[in-house]
Design a protein around this nucleic acid. Structure first.
Lengths: 231, 231
DNA sequence: GATCAACAATGATATATGTCAATTTATATT
DNA sequence: AATATAAATTGACATATATCATTGTTGATC
C-alpha cells in the first residue's frame, strides 16, 4: 500500500463526481490538504468489516466490491464501487465501525478523509448534510430492492438481477469483461457458485447471454428483465 | 381517520423520544404548530408504498408494521414501529416516494410533519441534520443484519431471529401477546405461513417456546440464539 | 346460540437449491 | 514449456422449502 497526496486533477475529478461537489471552495481546499490516497493491488482489502471506521473513503481509480462477511465464510456482495463513488458506511455518526468489507477487484486507488473532518463539513454546511442524507438514502433504496429480490425471487431471477446491475449500472454496456469470479457473481446473487454456474449455463443455452470466461454479452435484455420480474 | 391537533403532553412525549428532541425550543414550537395527528384503526393503511412522500410520520400510540410489497402479494415486514418512533423513509430528499407501506397493527395514532418543514429544520440546524443521519444509519445497520439473516440462514434461524426481535426489541419481555398473524411472522422471516407454523411447532416441541394463539413465551433464549447463529 | 369469515394447522407432494466429489480449464510462477 | 495453483464445470445426491388441498379453530356478527 502506497500512501501519497492527491494530484490536483484527481481531486477535481473526485469532487465533481460525488457528494463532495457540494462543498464550498474553501472546504474543498481544506479537504484537499488533509486527504490522502492509497494504491491497492487486485485482491487487497481496503478495509475490513468490524474494524473502526476512521475515514470516509472514495475510489478514484479501479474498482472495488463492498460485501458483508458472514460467520461461515459466506459473503454478500452489496455493490461495486467505481471511480468517483464515495463509501460512507452506516457506521458514520453511529458506532463508527465498518459494517462491510471492501476489496479491490483490480488495481485501485482510494482516497481517505478523516470522519472528524467529514463531520465538520456537515456542521459547517447543512446543505452538504442534506446531500449526504440524499446519498445515504439512495443507498438505502437500492438495498430495499436487493432485499426484495433476495427474499422472494429464485435463482434465475436473482442472477438476472445481478447481470442487469452489471450491465446497466456498472459497465453501462451489454457486453463487458469483468474481474469478478463466479464466486463473486454467486455472492451478488445469494447462491452457491455451483448454482451460479448452472444458471449461467441455462441462460447461455436459451440464447439470453453469451459468456466465455469473464467476457459477458447480454443478447436479450428483455428476456432477462422478464426473468427478474417473474422469477 | 380522525385528524386533530396534538395535545401538548403528547407532543413533549414525542419530541423527547426521537430525533426531534435535538431541535431547539423555537423549532419545537414551530413543529408543534404545523403537525397534525390521525387515528388509524387496526388493519388500516397509514401510507402506501409508491405514493408521494409528503410527510415524515411518527407514531405516538399503538403499533404499526413497515413492509415492502412485492408484485406477487408477497410482503417483507421490515420492522415494527412503537410510540415515539419516527418513520422517515429513504424517499426523503431523493425521489420523495414511499418505499414501503405502513399498516396499523392495532388502533394507532400517527403524527404528520410536512417534509418541507423537516428539510427546513435540517437547513437551520446542522446538528439536527447529523442526528437525522444517525437515525437513518441505524436503520441501515439493522437492514444489513436482516439481509444477512435472509440470505444465509435457513428457516429455523430466520424465525429465531424474528422471535428474538419481538422479545428483545419490540416487547422487551420473554412473554408477550401480539396482534401479528402467522402470516405476519412469516413475512418477517421470509417464508410461507405454513413454514412459519411448522417451525413454531418444532420450537414448541423442543421446549424452546410456548405459544397458544397469540400468546408467546420464550422459555430458552440461549437455544434460540444458538439456532440463529448456527441455522 | 348459529352462521360466517378469517386465521391456523396438517399432510402429501413437487421443486428449488445446497453439498460433496471428481474433472477440466485457466492463470501464474519457475 | 513445465509445473503448481486457483478457478470453473459437471454430475449425483440430499435436503430445505414452497405449493396445494383439506380440515380444524377462533372470533365476530346477526
Amino acid at each position: 500500500m502506497n500512501k501519497k497526496h492527491i494530484s490536483e486533477e484527481n481531486l477535481n475529478f473526485d469532487m465533481s463526481s460525488n457528494v463532495l461537489k457540494f462543498l464550498s471552495e474553501e472546504q474543498k481546499e481544506y479537504i484537499r490538504n488533509i486527504m490522502f490516497s492509497v494504491n491497492f493491488s487486485k485482491g487487497e482489502i481496503i478495509f475490513k468489516q468490524g474494524t473502526p471506521m476512521l475515514h470516509i473513503v472514495f475510489i478514484i481509480g479501479g474498482m472495488a466490491k463492498i460485501y458483508i462477511e458472514d460467520n461461515n465464510n459466506k459473503n454478500i456482495v452489496i455493490s461495486l464501487i467505481k471511480p468517483g463513488e464515495i463509501i460512507g458506511g452506516p457506521g458514520f455518526y453511529t458506532d463508527y465501525k465498518h459494517h462491510f468489507s471492501v476489496t479491490a477487484l483490480e488495481n485501485t486507488t482510494a482516497c481517505f478523509i478523516e470522519v472528524a473532518a467529514f463531520k465538520k463539513m456537515i456542521l459547517e454546511s447543512p446543505e452538504f448534510g442534506l446531500e449526504f442524507i440524499r446519498y445515504r438514502n439512495i443507498r438505502h433504496i437500492n438495498f430495499y430492492d436487493k432485499l426484495r429480490v433476495t427474499s422472494h425471487k429464485q435463482m434465475n431471477g436473482r442472477l438476472a438481477h445481478t447481470l442487469l446491475y452489471l450491465s446497466d449500472t456498472v459497465y453501462h454496456s451489454n457486453s463487458f469483461k469483468t474481474t469478478l469470479t463466479r464466486q463473486d457473481l454467486a455472492d451478488m446473487s445469494s447462491m452457491t457458485k455451483e448454482s451460479a454456474i448452472r444458471v449461467l449455463k441455462s441462460f447461455k443455452e436459451s440464447g439470453i447471454i453469451e459468456c466465455q470466461n469473464n467476457d459477458f454479452e447480454i443478447k436479450n435484455k428483455t428476456a432477462l428483465k422478464n426473468i427478474l420480474e417473474s422469477g
